[in-house]
């Protein structure tokens, strides 16, 4: 494709929009695995976060965690703790850290790291069983993480 003035402009606009996004390898963790700064600088969308949390093709958090506030989502798992009331006893910074890479908060946990792109053994291309294409994409995008954090913060009553 020939780079016209128009496409160059489009690319510039696009990269400007992502200028504030922290890349997976650049995320800074605190002493307890928390991540202070938003990954995108934009507030999370609660409804989108709920969807990402629930759907198999997205975060699929319900495969391991049950949440009473989602009575319509079938087959909630029990591999991880029930997350009712999580917004009460966790801060957004802690939740962000747990989502980005839960192993920084819980050493050796079975919970996957959702915003990570390096250090895998035989990374695959989604659920195809084939090798992952280069570069590896994180399971969730930076904004997805912010959306899920926003949703989790609404889970207030135990």
């Amino acid at each position: 494709m020939r780079l016209t003035g128009l496409t160059v402009a489009a690319v510039l606009v696009a990269s400007a929009a992502f200028a504030n996004v922290v890349a997976p390898d650049d995320v800074a963790f605190g002493e307890y695995g928390e991540v202070e700064a938003s990954l995108t600088g934009s507030a999370g969308d609660v409804d989108k976060g709920r969807q990402i949390f629930s759907e198999k093709s997205m975060g699929n958090c319900v495969s391991c965690h049950a949440v009473a506030a989602l009575p319509d989502v079938p087959f909630q798992g029990e591999v991880g703790p029930v997350l009712d009331g999580i917004g009460e006893y966790r801060t957004p910074e802690e939740l962000r850290g747990i989502l980005v890479n839960a192993k920084k908060t819980f050493d050796g946990t079975v919970m996957p790291a959702f915003y990570k792109t390096s250090g895998f053994i035989r990374p695959g291309d989604d659920y195809t069983g084939k090798a992952a294409p280069d570069p590896i994409q994180p399971i969730l995008s930076a904004q997805d993480v912010e959306d899920v954090v926003a949703f989790l913060m609404t889970l207030k009553d135990n």
């Binding site: 699929n60 079938p74 029990e78 996957p112 053994i121 035989r122 992952a132 590896i136 399971i139």
Partner: peptide, 24 residues
């Protein structure tokens, strides 16, 4: 060995979590 983007080993599911539901 914890394979893949989810970094899960056989043991994570079948030794640490047998008896638990993972979704359905």
């Amino acid at each position: 060995t914890r394979y893949g983007l989810l970094e899960l080993s056989c043991a994570n599911c079948h030794e640490q979590n047998y008896g638990n539901y993972i979704r359905a």
